[in-house]
């Protein structure tokens, strides 16, 4: 009996914490179903659901294209980072090389470089080689934080695969690259999927490089979401609707990859 009471109290407290914690997210979702004008003029609890804001953002001059840019940049940077990163993690975990430890150390360390520190040099370098305001340039900038992150995440995954597997494959006459593709890739597939998803998400959420390195053409969605603030009257309804769409992958990832979140987080924190 006492146990049930305690568990009920704990549940109520936990529920309360979750409700408070999710409140701002609810604010975004709810305001996406309001009209801009109702948000300014009515009290915050006035709510008459309408799809007007969603209609507006999908016919918006910039939002649909920026959403496409976001998808392309996030996919491209995740794909390149995972391909090169998984190869590097495999090489670093399997072959003993003189500078191995130093390389691992450096790769793990550079994950933490603040983006703003590189924003200035990236801006100047990209301007001189014509990569400013291009999807490719922005993807490269995103790879610069995603690649070390992927290596850091995958190293322990690869190290934990028993050596007997590749010994067996070697006896069967597999070449090194075949071993990587046929033995390691499938065995580490869980880790690789997690790495890809997290890399995608970090790029999807990224703001600083998008702000500094893109202009009109390669603008990504977070920039346009922010631009709904406008000069004089913030278009909160459209901003919230666009924000809700940006949150969809976040929900999908957080709720489905629960098991791996801690690993993902401790491998490199999150980017602001």
């Amino acid at each position: 009996m006492r146990r049930r009471v305690i568990s009920f109290i704990v549940l109520s407290v936990a529920l309360l914490i979750v409700l408070i914690e999710l409140f701002p997210i609810m604010v975004v979702i709810v305001n996406g179903f309001k009209r801009d004008i109702d948000i300014w003029s009515k009290n915050p609890f006035y709510f008459k659901p309408t799809l007007r804001s969603y209609q507006l953002i999908f016919t918006h001059r910039e939002f649909p294209r920026s959403l496409r840019n976001s998808l392309v940049v996030a996919s491209l940077s995740a794909l390149v980072s995972v391909s090169l990163g998984s190869m590097a993690a495999y090489g670093l975990s399997r072959f003993n090389f003189k500078f191995n430890d130093a390389l691992i150390f450096i790769l793990l360390m550079v994950r933490m470089i603040p983006q703003i520190s590189l924003a200035v040099p990236f801006y100047m370098i990209f301007r001189s080689v014509g990569l400013n305001d291009t999807v490719l340039g922005l993807s490269l900038a995103h790879i610069s934080f995603n690649l070390p992150y992927v290596v850091a995440l995958l190293l322990p995954f690869f190290s934990s695969i028993p050596r007997e597997y590749e010994e067996a494959a070697k006896v069967d006459g597999c070449k090194t690259f075949q071993i990587f593709l046929k033995i390691f890739f499938p065995l580490a597939s869980a880790g690789i999927v997690v790495a890809a998803v997290f890399a995608f998400l970090m790029s999807w959420n990224e703001f600083i490089y998008a702000l500094v390195l893109t202009g009109t053409r390669a603008k990504t969605a977070p920039i346009v979401v922010n631009a709904f603030l406008g000069q004089y009257a913030p278009l909160w309804g459209q901003l919230s609707a666009a924000g809700t769409i940006m949150l969809l992958p976040v929900f999908a990832v957080t709720l489905s990859l629960q098991r791996y979140i801690i690993r993902g987080l401790s491998a490199g924190g999150i980017k602001g």
Partner: peptide
Amino acid sequence: LLMLPVFVLPVLSGLT
């Protein structure tokens, strides 16, 4: 559910 805010876009969090 508690983990959601950590992954919310920083921009959107600030705007909210």
